[in-house]
Design a protein around this nucleic acid. Sequence first.
DNA 1: AACTTGATTAAACGTTCGTTTGAATTTTAT
DNA 2: ATAAAATTCAAACGAACGTTTAATCAAGTT
Lengths: 233, 233
Amino acid sequence: MNDKQTTKDRILNAAECIFADKGFDGSSLRDITTAAGVNLASVSYHFGSKNGLIEAVFARHLGPMNAARIALLDRVEEQVGEGSPAIELVLEAFIRPVVMHDLAEHGANDAFMRLMSRCLNEPPTHLEQFEHHFDALMNRFHAAFSRALPDHSPNEIFWGVHFTLGIMHHTLHVLSHLHHLPFCPSESADAQTVVERLIAYAAAGMKAQHGSGVSVNEPCGGTLSFLNSSVNL
Amino acid sequence: MNDKQTTKDRILNAAECIFADKGFDGSSLRDITTAAGVNLASVSYHFGSKNGLIEAVFARHLGPMNAARIALLDRVEEQVGEGSPAIELVLEAFIRPVVMHDLAEHGANDAFMRLMSRCLNEPPTHLEQFEHHFDALMNRFHAAFSRALPDHSPNEIFWGVHFTLGIMHHTLHVLSHLHHLPFCPSESADAQTVVERLIAYAAAGMKAQHGSGVSVNEPCGGTLSFLNSSVNL
DNA sequence: AACTTGATTAAACGTTCGTTTGAATTTTAT
DNA sequence: ATAAAATTCAAACGAACGTTTAATCAAGTT
């Protein structure tokens, strides 16, 4: 790494990688300060505590990333005026800055992707620490998804949004070690292409939410009814 | 809890809840043995080590659950013979036993859901520990998905399967504390309905993979090209 | 040159961790 | 009833943890 970096930055950079690899509870401050080449006590000095460091690591990326998502959504809604925006456009604003953030800002380093994945992966105790970074964002996008799919019920929007969060989350998790996965074709690593695949999958899935999940006694329109019998599950 | 349980079962039950809440690294054996009402040393005696306990907690559920998924897939493939199974049927075999397992076996307790979510949430070091539970399963289902979508390229199947894993994973994570989530309609908690929504979303998304992600210079067929300009992301 | 301020350092603090020990106890088999 | 085997228990082990302390260093100011 560059020796011109401040101690604070060296700690943030090292913490980002190590948190991503081992989780918060699995990473010790000694691991981090050793990797950063700084003294153990400088974490307390610059960040107050381990929790302060965790918050700082996330704040460095979450702010700009979510601002970029809001900015893209602004442009979509400005362009569409009073009408309904295409669901694909809303999804692009929602998804692209997340998957592209790391490549745009830090070249080939994928530490941020693995770190973002930790956002949802950590135990609830830690999650509460940076929930506030997403409050305003989710308000805006929830409204935008509702406008893009005006026929959908609140329930259909709710689950559509959550499933979309799921594919984004899992993609971040998977993108950082693609080459270790079974069935992974050699051509599949381009982030730009993955964004398009995500949008295609999510758009089709969200549209298909409308009218699904309505049958109670006869799941999936009856075509699958034989699966509901006595098979042990 | 029932006092007739063996020490081994009391430990497994308590560990299941506490691992689900706090993660492996965040849970101490003292937390677990205190909750179970047993002596600290009995973990070493019955399971050898903390890692042994982790493996045992998962093995208790992963075996039956994945066997149920394979059994459902067997029935689907047996029914369809040489032809292509409907993607919805393969998805049902893939998804339903995961979401329904906890309710079927253990009533209203959702500890297993949160624990299953940990399967993908923990740092890679821990993940390797129970990867082997999924090897045979993923081989079977990857082949089944390919048969159900014969026009899809390996790349399209690969990402379709991973996105589907993503929505399942996120759903498990979310189902256990639905009532705390913003925008959650009151009617949305029924697991049977959620399974149908998952299948509808995944079926539409996987079908939509075919032909997506092919454009390199002009993402998403050009409709979104204005988003590729100088907006800071 | 003396002083102030902010940053860095080595060392130690008390706590909690997973694991081990060896004796006490319960269960099983003869 | 007695011996053997399996289980439970209180106590302690060394290691690693987050945090704190007080001394040292490096600039900048008067």
